[in-house]
Design a protein around this nucleic acid. Sequence first.
DNA 1: TCATCAATAT
DNA 2: CATATTGATG
Length: 280
Amino acid sequence: MREEDSNWFSKWEDELPSPEELMPLSQTLITPDLAIAFNIPTPHHHHHTIHHNHTPPPPPPQESTAVSSQPNSSPDYDSPELSGAGGGAGGSDEPARTLKRPRLVWTPQLHKRFVDAVAHLGIKNAVPKTIMQLMSVDGLTRENVASHLQKYRLYLKRMQSISSGGGGGTAAASGIDAATDRLFASSPVPAHFLHPGRANSDHHFMPFVPVVHHHHQYPQQQQQQFRHFGNSPPNGGHQFDNPFMRQSQQQQVQPRNTAMPPIHSSNGSKVLTLFPTGED
DNA sequence: TCATCAATAT
DNA sequence: CATATTGATG
């Protein structure tokens, strides 16, 4: 089983789409809204007091490459928004500083990364922030993870209850594999999750979180492509080409559904789905 | 500040 | 229904 330890990363890598596959998007990266949200780029140089924290008291442990290319403007706090005046004004450009991101769709794949991350971190360190970092999914927020984690924990709890209780587990047991938790069921639950009491065996030897972050001011809003990114293992990153599938814009294949209409937000809610649902 | 949870909203 | 958001509490 030691192999796995050395392979876990490779396996992970395998699932990761190659860089090339990630970028190609037919979407405009910067949408009008975005520009507006950022305070309308006036035909002038935007210098914006860039923040190159030189003397920040609390140094964030996230010192990666100093690649702050892409001088994005920083979110200035001044929104002319608010009422007023303009009223609806067509509603095209809304200053809306309160932009909402589209709902994240937890595909089995994404969930798998989540579970893997939690598994490798150990219950102990599996807190939203850390998980989020390990997952390295662009656009994924701490709250996304927190929310999912909360639900996932409930799922684990139910699982423990049924597996140990035994008594009177009438429909309870069946309840598990029932329609609910379809998502959670798609990913195997690491053993240790079921008993927190036990520490993990030998897996706290992480080569260090591959968190190779960019420093980015993530633009909030609009459909964005959540994408992963290959990290390089500390000891020899091997990159194999991964003939993977392309990303679908929005299309989620529900496992149990002969019907085809997947993304049906009854309304016109924008749903963001991650990469395509391949197979597990 | 962050994590966790319960309740609630969309 | 799945996810987001909020508020209380540690």
